[in-house]
Design a protein around this nucleic acid. Structure first.
Length: 583
RNA sequence: UGUCCCAUGGUGUAAUUGGCAACACGUCAGGUUUUGGUUCUGUAAUUUAAGGUUCGAGUCCUUAUGGGACAACCA
């Protein structure tokens, strides 16, 4: 970290969770320890919303000298897979974070089981044999108290016997569950005898066939935190109603462990911040899964996806993401962030990082009539004017070039600063050129009236670096490639997948109004033009030799990244984000 | 007709904890520039409402309004 960053860092005020952590440390809570965890369920790929949580969990540990574990929340073998575990690890490392160790909720299955038996024996839990419909009906509503289950007061010995049967593999899923005996009239729905264990009769990718009954999230998370030594269990706002239950189970497990220290010390505490909402973006894993399954996008790493692998392929740097997260902050307000802020953070970073190259994405031929037929000159191009250490590369110049079609206008008027009859422009790293006043002399058209070739003359004294190049001209500086010294390439331009600001709400509403679900409720809001493939582009030779994931700027166009689909014959580029355009 | 949470320029966040409302992005106008990029200078725009406490309120209290979360054998 540079000195400058250090000063800005120290000037910036802490977010509300950092303030809590700082205060707890001062007060010596939990023995002055700080330990957090990032607990993804390995049932899908991480997205930009997870990045916000990662920066919080890992970042706060880093900042205050604590520890952060990566914990796979693998309590539902129905949906989870090793493939996702690997991807999660890769994404976190890509962001630049290191974990103390990797843990699994399944590490605690035996503890959780023993603890559950103790809960039964001490009258805190019972086995319920009703159907899920019956249980739902008894649960009441937020405005109405629930009713007790007829099994609520069965003897502990009976519950214990049935609980053990639940894990035998002989009980059909749905026939029995273990419930905590709390309060069916609680205004907090999570307190109405929540489910602790359910029968799945499914093997688990880590524990094999040892378990047939698996613990629920609420009966796992706080206990795992406690057993691991987590001090600050930080999650998003939708878990606020779970906190009371979290605290209760932590209190119970301390009792079970014979941990008779102060109940307010040596225990994890849950804190909640606002999750990331981005306009024109759909975040939930469930919906992203639909998009990939239905082929709306080409896999989880499609550059239009908000997944970290998608964003990476799109061409964002980890630092760009970190900058963005830093800009939006952490509060308890359910904000809808503007995607433009993320793009601004990206430009800010890529401006420092990206190699400048010339690519012509909508080419028209330009012939320099007074330039020698067989001359080829090697021009020097600066790789990145923002970074003196980035060096230079060669771009070859000749009589026949491609320039952008929209850099020439037959009647552009006074305000059009680029090429046209009688107009003079500079070719970047090249010469000053000029078109004849007479349109018939500088424009070649086909039968349909389309411009197929532009003619100009160059000023031989104006080559970049020569004294003659220093003269001021009215026109702008244009980028170009030499027709014989460029490579055809594929350029993929992306825009938002969604046409409405808040696709989540729009889809939900559509589902309600039209009685359809899933992809059918999404289609009306999908942007048909979210991917534009351009196979008619040319790029300078040097750029075609760069490896996948190289950060590039197509000068005057935008930031681009080398895609994994590239071949030596045809490199493929993804548009990360366009240049700011104040034309 | 429940419980809990939230409300500061267009968007997101600050405000030394009750003491001059600011920062970033965006807007608009201009300077620099071999990228209509970058950079620099300037610009307009903010405490949801009403009442209360106080010398003093974005901050505390009350009420209203608006928004969010909660009723999966998901996490």
């Amino acid at each position: 970290m540079t000195q400058q960053e250090n000063t800005t860092e120290s000037k910036k005020s802490l977010n509300f969770i950092e303030k809590i952590v700082q205060q707890d440390l001062v007060e010596g809570k939990n023995g002055g320890r700080l330990q957090t965890r990032f607990p993804p369920e390995p049932n899908g790929y991480l997205h930009i919303g997870h990045a916000k949580a990662i920066v919080m969990d890992f970042g706060i540990a880093e900042k205050f000298g604590g520890l952060c574990y990566l914990r796979m929340d693998d309590t539902n073998p129905q949906k989870e897979d090793l493939e996702y575990v690997r991807a999660i690890e890769e994404d976190i490392q890509w962001l630049g974070y290191k974990w103390g160790k990797v843990c699994y909720a399944s590490d605690y299955f035996q503890d959780l089981w023993d603890f559950a038996e103790w809960c039964i024996l001490t009258g805190k839990a019972y086995v319920d044999e009703q159907s899920s419909e019956e249980i739902a009906a008894q649960k009441g509503t937020p405005t109405q108290a629930g009713k007790n289950s007829p099994y609520r007061d069965r003897p502990a010995t009976e519950s214990l016997k049935l609980f053990r049967e639940m894990n035998s593999g002989c009980v059909e899923p749905g026939k029995m569950i273990l419930r905590a005996k709390i309060d069916m009239a609680s205004p907090n729905m999570h307190f109405r005898d929540p489910i602790m264990y359910r029968v799945l009769n499914l093997p688990h990718w880590r524990t094999g066939t040892k378990w047939n009954a698996y613990p629920m999230y609420d009966f796992t998370h706080g206990q795992s935190d406690y057993l691991e030594g987590v001090t600050h269990s930080i999650c998003t706002l939708e878990f606020v109603p779970h906190r009371e239950l979290y605290d209760l189970f932590v209190t119970w497990i301390k009792e079970w462990k014979g941990d008779d220290g102060d109940i307010n010390d040596n225990r994890p505490r849950q804190f909640e911040f606002n999750k990331l909402n981005l306009n024109y973006t759909l975040m939930s894993k469930r919906n992203l899964l639909i998009l990939t399954n239905e082929g709306v996008v080409n896999g989880w790493d499609d550059p239009r996806m908000p997944t970290l692998c998608g964003i990476r392929r799109r061409g964002y740097s980890p630092q760009a993401i970190l900058n963005f997260i830093d800009k939006i902050g952490y509060t308890t307000f359910d904000a809808l962030n503007d995607i433009k802020l993320m793009e601004a953070a990206c430009r800010e970073d890529l401006n420092q990082r990206a190699l400048r190259v010339s690519a012509v994405v909508d080419p028209v031929k330009l012939v320099i009539d007074n330039y020698p037929e067989d001359l080829v000159e090697e021009m020097t191009a600066i790789n990145n004017p923002e970074d003196e250490d980035s060096g230079t590369h060669i771009i070859r110049f000749s009589r026949e070039l491609y320039i952008e079609r929209d850099d020439f206008m037959e009647d552009g008027g006074k305000k059009f600063m680029r090429l046209g009859p009688g107009k003079e422009v500079r070719l970047k790293n090249g010469y000053i050129i000029k078109c004849d006043e007479d349109p018939t002399k500088c424009i070649e058209k086909d039968a349909a009236g389309n411009i197929i070739c532009i003619h100009a003359t160059y000023d031989p004294e104006s080559r970049s670096g020569m004294p003659g190049a220093d003269r001021k001209i009215k026109g702008k500086t244009l980028h170009w490639v030499s027709t014989n010294h460029c490579v055809p390439c594929e350029v993929r331009d992306y825009s938002c997948l969604w046409t409405c600001e808040n696709p989540r709400d729009a889809i939900k509403q559509y589902e309600k109004d039209h009685g359809v679900r899933g992809i059918d409720a999404m289609r009306p809001f999908l942007n048909p033009d979210s991917l534009k493939i351009n196979k008619n582009a040319f790029i300078e030779e040097w750029a075609s030799t760069l490896p996948v994931f190289t950060y590039l700027q197509f000068q005057r166009i935008g930031y681009y990244n080398v895609d994994k689909d590239s071949t030596p014959e045809c490199p493929v580029f993804n548009r990360t984000v366009g240049l700011r355009d104040t034309k």
